[in-house]
């Protein structure tokens, strides 16, 4: 599904990613861990197509297609979803209205008609129940005055609504209390299938107790320095990141 080869990316001439390679197949869950400033979030933004990052070398293939000249919205239409670490506020635009617009724009890109209102309502009801979201919440302005937990839950709600092929969750666990974390994790687990894939970007092991990854990668200084299975996450929890920083790159 996703093939990243020797990816180098810079922002304002400062190289942040220094050769990342990663392959994600349908049905897989990958966790990307690493200390602050290692390039985790940059990797997420680059996959989503944020313009301020310049790819200087390497490539990102999504379902065999090079994403280099594909705009962020087209990537979204193709099924790439990013759950933001810091979701932005859009005053006056309700969650429902935002989702309606997003879904219909994707449908339009695929040559489909707008989703009929009754279908939309059904979908909203179904997904909000799954994530234990009060529907009053959906008429509030997008992320405005939301608590940290509400913002993250809202991101997962959007993911549920859009049903992406590849979901990248950037520090979705940060700022969540244990109950919210469980709800979010349950949501992600329910949405998982053999056809879609998830990349979890996280600082801590905690989330991985709820969403079991198939692979764990450790990123440091713009490179993946170690890959393994879920046991690697436990090892990291125990030893911290310092031992990896010292280890020579394999």
């Amino acid at each position: 599904m996703l093939k990243i080869k020797d990816l180098h990316a810079s922002v304002e001439d400062k190289e942040i990613l220094k050769g990342v390679s990663l392959e994600v197949k349908p049905g897989e869950v990958h966790a990307i861990m690493g200390p602050n400033g290692s390039g985790k979030s940059t990797l997420a933004s680059v996959i989503a197509g944020k313009e301020e990052f310049e790819i200087t070398k390497g490539s990102i293939l999504f379902e065999g297609e090079d994403l280099e000249d594909v705009s962020p919205e087209e990537r979204a239409h193709k099924g790439v979803f990013l759950s933001f670490q810091y979701p932005v506020e859009i005053p006056g635009v309700s969650v429902t209205n935002f989702m309606k617009t997003a879904i219909n724009e994707s449908r339009k890109a695929r040559g489909q008609e707008d989703m009929p209102a009754n279908e939309m309502l059904k979908l909203i009801r179904e997904k909000s129940e799954m994530l234990d979201i009060d529907r009053k919440f959906l008429s509030r302005s997008l992320n405005q005055g939301f608590s940290g937990g509400e913002k993250k839950r809202n991101e997962i709600f959007q993911m549920a609504m859009l049903e992406p092929k590849l979901a990248i969750l950037d520090e979705t666990d940060s700022g969540l209390d244990i109950d919210a974390l469980r709800i979010v994790a349950n949501g992600v687990n329910k949405l998982k299938s053999k056809d879609n894939a998830v990349i979890l970007i996280t600082h801590y092991q905690r989330l991985l107790e709820y969403i079991i990854p198939d692979f764990v990668h450790v990123i440091h200084d713009g490179k993946i320095v170690k890959s393994g299975t879920k046991e690697l996450a436990l090892e990291l929890e125990e030893k911290g990141y310092d031992w990896l920083k010292k280890e020579p790159v394999a």
Partner: peptide
């Protein structure tokens, strides 16, 4: 970018933000 990532192009995103405002 947030709107773009959800599949909403820039023109539409501006319209959405302006309407919200």
């Amino acid at each position: 970018f947030y709107c773009n990532q959800r599949g909403i192009d820039t023109e539409k995103a501006i319209a959405l933000i302006v309407n919200g405002f």
